[in-house]
Design a protein around this nucleic acid. Structure first.
Lengths: 265, 265
DNA sequence: CGGATCTTTGCAAGTTTTTGCACGTTTTTG
DNA sequence: CAAAAACGTGCAAAAACTTGCAAAGATCCG
């Protein structure tokens, strides 16, 4: 089956897999290079790239493609990108928080907005692996903060890896906000990165309830690593313009769907 | 000095990403420099800058471009208190850092200045209990970052306590920067808080060498909790106007004293 | 087996993007 | 104010891209 032979003859799908591997390891691929390497015309290879891009597995650019899982856009930019919409979502999400609860907040720009929107008078304790979230909270007052340590992945903006996972095992939280890369009513919650997904999963399992806050582009999207099935998600906060069909689909799986009001101060 | 890798063929979009990275880490870029580095004409590079500026990702200026966001966070204001003096100290302190070393950096505004002054090309690994330091480093490039978790004390701005201590036990560092509350040539290093002092002590013991960076008001002062005796301090970085008597007193205990130049760019 | 159908592939034609250069303009500097 | 550097624009060539199409092979079904 598995032929490790030289690029003799390769199945189309196999070729696409190799392209993905290369994308993951190098962060970019050049169409002409791969065409030569796989001994196919550039046309075929461009078709591959187009397909992969259509599935959201890479970003097509002139001359080749760039990896998408390692977000090329810096954190600050992502944070500012849909500031208004994220604020609306965050305000809706914090309504689910109760007095004295322990919250588990993952790294990510949407979650940073949620942390910023948390009310101060509730005596909340926040557990997070994201330095920026911890920083934002201790510059305000009235939060207990527990920082999860570990190796920091700059692309993610927070700690990931075995050590973080281990620390997390000591925690029991009331509410969990795992940053979602993609969520689907049938297949559940998905992440782009392997370690990141493992951590999110552990977060969900360490919490009594899970809240997923998703901007429109994450609904129905797909990513490479499964985090948890949709049944483990208790609440879903979406934007006001989310289709009714989508909301019903999630509700059918026992998810409480909350709609944020339209953006705008 | 160390020039960048050979200008292997680069995709246009990829080039723009690199420009953004550079912008983020250096705060500014020079058109001619980048053109040479990427081996393209200045025209092409100017086009890139124009596009990025059109997307609001940078600010176009004569000769190059500037980073668009330099918002003064509350913490930075605090840091700005003695910004000039701390910058001078920090620059002197980072001269002690060698290639590929593992640094243990405690929380504190002076240490934040040191972290900001660290050069990127040395392949450094930074271990810290301070979210703001971790944040500053992963928004630049080229640092390995290990975050120490634990309960965060807002007054200190970093993790302290038993859990942090425990994580620290797994670390061996080359150089340690414990934030000093007070240092005295005879009695050694002192801290204000019990737990904080315990942590600093553990940091010193986990490192091959210790560097204390002290503004004038900390020299000869006293606090309540002893951290380590002065013999365990290898380097002391002080301001230019530190008295000769003080410097000699530390030198007599085997401490290498380094004087920072007067403040001012 | 045989024919219909689908997939994959390479080619050709036409389009879009990128790039460097020429030329005139604007900004900076002394 | 004048020279130098940086800039913007138009332009033409090259590279990369898309689309349509037909041939070759695989697959399916009766």
């Amino acid at each position: 089956m598995a032929r490790r032979a030289p690029p003799a003859e390769m199945l189309p799908q196999e070729r696409q897999q190799r392209v993905l591997q290369r994308l993951r390891s190098h962060g970019r691929v050049v169409a002409a290079e791969l065409a030569a390497e796989f001994a196919v015309s550039e046309d075929s290879l461009r078709r591959d790239l187009r397909e992969l891009a259509a599935q959201g597995l890479c970003r097509r650019v002139y001359g080749g493609a760039l990896s998408v899982s390692l977000p090329a856009t810096p954190l600050k930019q992502r944070r500012g990108e849909h500031a208004g919409r994220k604020l609306a979502l965050a305000r809706k999400a914090v309504e689910l928080v109760g007095e004295g609860q322990v919250l588990l907040i993952d790294a990510g720009s949407t979650n940073a907005a949620i942390a910023a929107a948390l009310p101060e008078r509730l005596g909340l304790t926040v557990v997070t692996n994201a330095p920026d979230i911890a920083l934002a909270l201790y510059e305000r007052e009235g939060f207990g903060i527990l920082l999860l340590g570990g190796r920091i992945d700059p692309r993610i903006g927070g700690a990931v890896g075995a050590q973080t996972l281990q620390e997390l095992r000591r925690i029991r939280a009331d509410l969990c906000f795992p940053g979602a890369c993609a969520i689907d009513a049938d297949t559940g919650l998905w992440g782009f990165d392997s370690e990141e997904s493992l951590l999110k999963r552990a977060m969900v399992e360490a919490s009594a309830e899970t809240v997923v806050v998703a901007t429109g582009d994450k609904l129905g999207a797909r990513a490479t690593h499964r985090i948890v099935p949709v049944e483990q998600v208790r609440h879903l906060v979406v934007e006001h313009d989310t289709g009714r069909a989508t909301r019903v689909a999630f509700a059918a799986h026992g998810v409480a769907v909350h709609r944020a009001p339209p953006a705008g101060e």
